[in-house]
Design a protein around this nucleic acid. Structure first.
Lengths: 251, 251
DNA sequence: CCTCGTCTAGTGGTATACCGTTAGTTCGGG
DNA sequence: CCCGAACTAACGGTATACCACTAGACGAGG
């Protein structure tokens, strides 16, 4: 790639014109691709190949990989390479164990520290979710629901909690794509609206209880579906040990 | 720096001989320096200068800074630079809000998933803490207590939780160094021992309740002490805007 | 035929060098 | 004397190039 700025990959330009550094753009792109399953769990990520594909050099690409690793979407084996993180049924259980605790905290704090703009934004997400439900638009519905959760976290006014939620939210979105049903469900809306009212009323106990029930309700279905896709055990060390030579030989 | 491997900085070699990559070594070193207050909150971190000081190039140093940013010990302002993260009284409050929730979860999960080796390790930390207490060794006591917490988290058998706890533990250690009293206190040991027994008995409710009280007990004292050191508000954008030229001019 | 050593290429790790941006400075005009 | 526009250097961002490590491949010896 020529060392000019204006030769960026179109796939990265279409997002926002030079939003931040190339590393950050690559991070966003790869994150979306992983969550959207364009890059399935277990896929080998070779620095040189990926850098060529994204038309950037390895430096910003490596930065992107490190960010993704911190978020749990990529596993990096030192001196061997990287792969898209596996997502097993056990991971789903771990995720819900944590969410049952942390989402409750977020809701409680939101009820204590909410403000006008935050409430307004949360309500707009609720409206958007209802509209998507009416159109039977699964993706928009999920996006709006995720947006509501983000609003709750924002209202918690706790930067530490917000940064901790990032890996969790990424995995929740991932989980949504992995569970292909995507049937818009009105119960989600009902529960979110109840949470909204509890937060707006400043009732931390009720908001927390609702958040707990909300997470709890989706736990078992998610676990059941997770049990299906988790077929083979992916060992990161083994996957990254494979060299491209082997693939060529298989042709 | 010459591109050979055997010209590493001694300050990084004394740790473990070539533990991992230079970036990771720099990360560990800087983390210790930040937590140990050799690099106080608000200190400007200029990539070139730091790289020269650690006798590495900017590439691994940048990686170290990104890791520290993910852990919340460093603030990076895009296109401007990095500084040691400020640690305000509000941050302490946020930290305890989160800990009151997450430490409880860790204790509960540990009580559900503990195993023999984990319990043994935890107990050895308790013994070490008692011994340090007898010697009136504040540092060793704190280290053993931190070790006990890590054992609890390890026993929770939840990788997601473990990765989430990393920033929290870093800040707890930081907080310890910022609060200069460091008087070894037997109540910590008593509470830890009670938690240990609850976990070993598989009593999740009791372990969680003890963890909550344990965190709760140190909250107010920490907040009071935090109110003292938080004198000036450090704005990352302002701090990183400063160029070295200004410092030279001041001489 | 099996085993062990060497060899090679693929891959991550790192150094160097350059580019673009921006904070201060300085100089000129009002 | 003050204000602004151009200039300069410091600094983060990135590309290129090289080095170190390792896993397969291949050949020699048992």
């Amino acid at each position: 790639m020529a060392p000019q700025w204006n030769t960026k990959n179109e796939a990265m330009m279409d997002r926002e014109s030079a939003r931040r550094s190339l590393g950050h753009q690559a991070y966003r792109l790869l994150k979306d691709q992983i969550i959207g399953l364009q890059r399935p769990p277990g896929q080998r990520l070779v620095e040189r190949d990926l850098a060529t594909e994204l038309e950037i050099s390895r430096i910003p690409l490596r930065e992107a990989l490190r960010l993704l690793e911190a978020e749990g979407l990529v596993v990096i084996v030192p001196r061997q390479g990287a792969m898209v993180a596996p997502f097993t049924a056990a991971d789903v259980r771990h995720l819900f164990d944590v969410r049952e605790s942390v989402e409750v905290l977020a809701a409680r704090l939101a009820a204590q520290h909410y403000d006008g703009p935050g409430l307004a934004q949360a309500q707009s997400q609720l409206v958007a979710a209802r509209e998507a439900l009416a159109r039977n638009d699964g993706i928009a519905h999920a996006t709006a629901n995720a947006g509501f959760h983000e609003c709750v976290i924002a209202m918690s006014a706790n930067p530490l909690l917000q940064s901790m939620m990032q890996p969790i939210n990424a995995r929740v979105s991932w989980l949504f794509h992995l569970t292909t049903q995507n049937q818009p469900d009105s119960t989600q809306c009902v529960e979110h609206e109840a949470m909204y009212h509890a937060i707006a009323a400043g009732d931390a106990d009720r908001a927390g209880e609702l958040a707990y029930q909300h997470v709890r309700a989706t736990r078992e279905p998610s676990l059941e579906m997770a049990a299906r896709w988790t077929l083979t055990h992916l060992d990161p060390v083994e996957v990254t040990r494979t060299r491209q030579r082997e693939r060529r030989a298989a042709l």
